[in-house]
Each structure stands twice: as C-alpha cells, then as structure tokens.
C-alpha cells in the first residue's frame, strides 16, 4: 500500500507530468531522474525539469480482470503503455472507454483521476490516467 508521504513526494509528476530534459543529449525522460542513461556523468548539471503535454499514442494495452484489490470497483479496467509525443513511454489506465474502442496507435491524453485510496478512512491518491482523444478539443 502506498503511504501519504511517498505519494505526496511525486505529486508534481503525477498531477502535471513533470519529467526532465537532458541538455547534454536532448533526450526527455519521465519520471525525473538525476542522471541521463545516455550521457552518464556528462549530464550532471545539465538536467532540467520539463512539463510533458500528456498527449501520445497507445503502444500496447490490456484489460485487467484480476490482481489489485483496491481497484475492485473499476474491474475490469484498461491499462496501456503510451508513447508520449515528447518521446518517453509511460504506463497508466485508460478510462471512459471500452477495450473495443482501443487499438494500438490510438491517440490519448491525460486527465486527473483518483488512482487509489488507503481504505475508506485513508488518504486518497490522485494522478494521471488516459482518455481517448475524440476530437481536437476533447
């Protein structure tokens, strides 16, 4: 189970997709990391925060039926690996649609939703999930 401080620490990335850009090689990473895996030591001092737009395409997806107790009211739910337009891939749930609406390559964007809660009396954790892009605005 997640605990409040561990989640809270990641809020900037979970709410607003704050990752990093390595100004040594120009590659983008999400979530933030201290060292660029391409440039190693050359990247020290050249890493700066980058806010990702949250738009990308489905690289692969799965409809989850078993495995996480606290997601019971969501079951079955969709999980996808998404390739963001800025480069990195990330993993997250896809919501407000059915598996049959999805295919590899489909465009999605992030929204803020509840990720989990620590029981009915505990802290609620929020973060990004994906919704299909239905038109240019939505």
């Amino acid at each position: 189970m997640a605990t409040a401080p561990r989640f809270w620490r990641q809020n900037p990335s979970r709410y607003n997709l704050i990752g990093i850009k390595c100004n040594s090689c120009g590659k983008n990473y999400f979530p933030p990391r201290a060292i660029c895996p391409v440039c190693h030591r050359k990247s020290v001092g050249k890493i700066e925060p980058l806010k990702f737009k949250g738009e990308g395409a489905i690289f692969s997806f799965s409809e989850v039926h078993e495995g996480i107790d606290e997601k019971a009211t969501l079951k079955p739910y969709l999980v996808a690996m998404v390739e963001l337009d800025e480069g990195p891939k990330i993993t997250g749930q896809v919501i407000d649609c059915d598996a049959c609406d999805l295919k590899i390559g489909a465009r999605v964007r992030t929204v803020l939703r509840k990720l989990s809660e620590e029981g009915s009396a505990g802290v609620i954790h929020y973060g990004y999930k994906f919704v299909p892009v239905r038109d240019k605005k939505e």
Binding site: S60, F61, S62, V64, G67, I68, I90, T91, K129
Partner: peptide, 21 residues
Amino acid sequence: QEWETELGATFASLHALIARR
C-alpha cells in the same frame, strides 16, 4: 511500484502488454 503498479499495472498486465505487442 511508483510508476507502474500504483498507476494500475499488475504484474500480469505488464506481460499482457508485451504479449499484445
């Protein structure tokens, strides 16, 4: 845990992503 599991990915579903791809 922080960037897969807590976002909803189970161990099986990560392998399902591999399988589908």
